[in-house]
Design a protein around this nucleic acid. Structure first.
Lengths: 338, 338
DNA sequence: ATGAAAGCGCTAACAT
DNA sequence: ATGTTAGCGCTTTCAT
């Protein structure tokens, strides 16, 4: 490691012929320094190209001005937007963002959390891949504030930014019902899929739609999508409507559908979680349940910041709505057409 | 800021009835400590829930075990993959990743760089949005090692991980030529677009294809795509083949094409930089010039690590190939069909 | 208004 | 094999 001996506050003090304390005061805009000395110090700062060492400062102050982003699965389309949103919330407060990937693996996610903790981040924004209860168990007293985000239900113990999906889900269900669909298959990935299915169930029931357990697909890996969907399409009777977990599964699913010789929406209707620019230009265009992840992540970061500041009035739950956007991929159920 | 008084090495030392030095040695796996004392220290560590303070340690060691990722524009589809690749390279070495977004804005990018520098990252992985010369000027001696990545040409002064596009570009050009296209319009965004156009030009010339300057679109913002493409489609004669900068522009472009009443590939051929899962399921499927950004970023990070280690044999340029993948969106030029 | 000095939590000589 | 101690670069009382 190249330890470039950077210029320190002592160097500046020496050159400006003042004490280190004074330099510190100048750098931190303490108003009690005389303009003259301020000028002198500034001159020395410029001359030496001095940059305060954030880490030394933070050691002294016992904080890091850094928040950690822990993504259970970093390879998701929403990530760039989420990061941008978070940065937007953080920048005005001078916080930096350190990012950690759980790689959809329980052990890695655990280790990623440890990394963040070791570095003494001031707070953590966490979109867990592991089971929620497991995640909750990890946030212990003594640890820095944690905020879950991207969740579909509030957590008892951890402040949560959640995406309210029931309304959109119900709207979708009504729409599909009106189109003659009497059941729906959900295809999701990871532990979160279970929860979503659990929430979907009563909504469908309420409307008199079926949600047959044997026609739901709870995958553990994205890669299994093609095969699993292909298999599902050979069931008898064939499902008429499919709902996909994150939309990242959709391309594989579309290939499976095409390879099975089926056409959307004639033979099958399809809806996916997550809006994307591609949805509208697909042929047929893709119906989605959309979420503004930039705002979501930004607000989650804002909430975390308030908790870090020890603001006891900071909300423990915030909700963002999602929205059903009907496009061409949802159409009349095949039976009706016959 | 809640400064939870964490347990320090001194606490452990006291409990274990050894000196701080010994605790440090145990924690850092110094083999010279007697097993007995090691055991005792470990016990104390567990009992107190001691976690070494990475920042204090790093201050002392004059390094941060952190590298910075500076993305000129973070809202790009390649970002999740790139991050995962980088993490993959970093994790075994215990480095953390701090991420900074330039938001496609010169000032923001500059500021983002400063953030990284202030935090004394050990090295920086930079995919600039600003002009390359400007970026080069920013990496001064005394600053930590920097590696550019995602570049299309090597830098004289800064180690660079580059994506070799000429071969794929030429392959594409030959393909289009064989299909009867005699010219190509490039639509790109940001400063990088200029460079790409400059490289494209001779390749087309060589093959006898035209690259009329007035039919190239160098946008400054993604948002301008729809309008610009729409305008381009009204030119006379209409372009027969379009090449798109990052594929993020494609959805807007497809809308413009559709709204102009044109069809791919009958009226127009289209190729985009960047492979995506959506390309294959689009209708018609999308021809692309694909790059393995995970590997690219991973290798870039590997190169940076070697430079950080002061390895003088570390390469200053590494190249990754890109690959032309012809799909349905590239077809015979309209004139030939008539 | 400024200087002197203690100390944030840790490591690495240097002793013993 | 382990203890002691001097810093890493900074902020902040406490004096003056």
């Amino acid at each position: 490691m190249a330890k470039s001996k950077s210029v320190t506050i002592a160097d500046v003090a020496r050159l400006a012929e003042v004490s280190m304390g004074t330099v510190s005061r100048v750098v931190n805009r303490d108003p009690t320094v005389r303009p003259v000395t301020r000028k002198a110090v500034m001159a020395a700062v410029d001359r030496l190209g001095y940059r305060p060492n954030f880490n030394a400062r933070n050691l002294r102050l016992r904080q890091t001005q850094t928040i950690g982003l822990l993504m259970g699965n970093l390879t998701q389309a929403l990530v760039p937007l989420a990061i941008r949103g978070i940065e937007r919330a953080l920048r005005p407060h001078g916080y930096a963002l350190i990012i950690s990937d759980g790689a959809s693996d329980e052990d890695v996610e655990q280790e990623a959390l440890s990394t963040l903790l070791d570095r003494r981040v001031d707070g953590i924004l966490w979109m867990p891949h592991i089971r929620r209860s497991a995640a909750e168990a990890r946030v212990t007293p003594g640890a820095p504030p944690v905020v879950f985000f991207g969740q579909a239900s509030p957590s008892e113990s951890v402040p949560t930014a959640m995406v309210e999906e029931s309304a959109a889900l119900e709207e979708m269900a009504r729409d599909l019902l009106a189109l003659g669909h009497t059941e729906l298959s959900y295809i999701g990935v990871g532990p979160a899929a279970h929860g979503r299915l659990r929430r979907l169930h009563p909504i469908l029931n309420e409307l008199g739609m079926a949600c047959p357990p044997n026609r739901q697909l709870l995958l553990s890996r994205d890669e299994d999508t093609y095969e699993a969907v292909a298999r599902l399409l050979h069931a008898d009777p064939r499902p008429t409507a499919l709902l996909f977990g994150p939309h990242g599964l959709v391309p594989s699913a579309l290939r499976a559908i095409r390879d099975a010789g089926l056409q959307l929406p004639r033979d099958l209707s399809l809806v996916a979680f997550g809006e994307t620019d591609w949805a509208e230009v697909l042929n047929p265009s893709l119906s989605v349940i959309g979420v503004d992840y930039l705002t979501h992540a930004q607000d989650a970061a804002g909430m975390l910041l308030r908790h870090i500041d020890g603001d006891d009035d900071a909300p423990r739950v915030i909700r963002h709505r999602s929205e059903y956007i009907r496009r061409e991929s949802a159409g009349p159920a095949p039976a009706l057409q016959a």
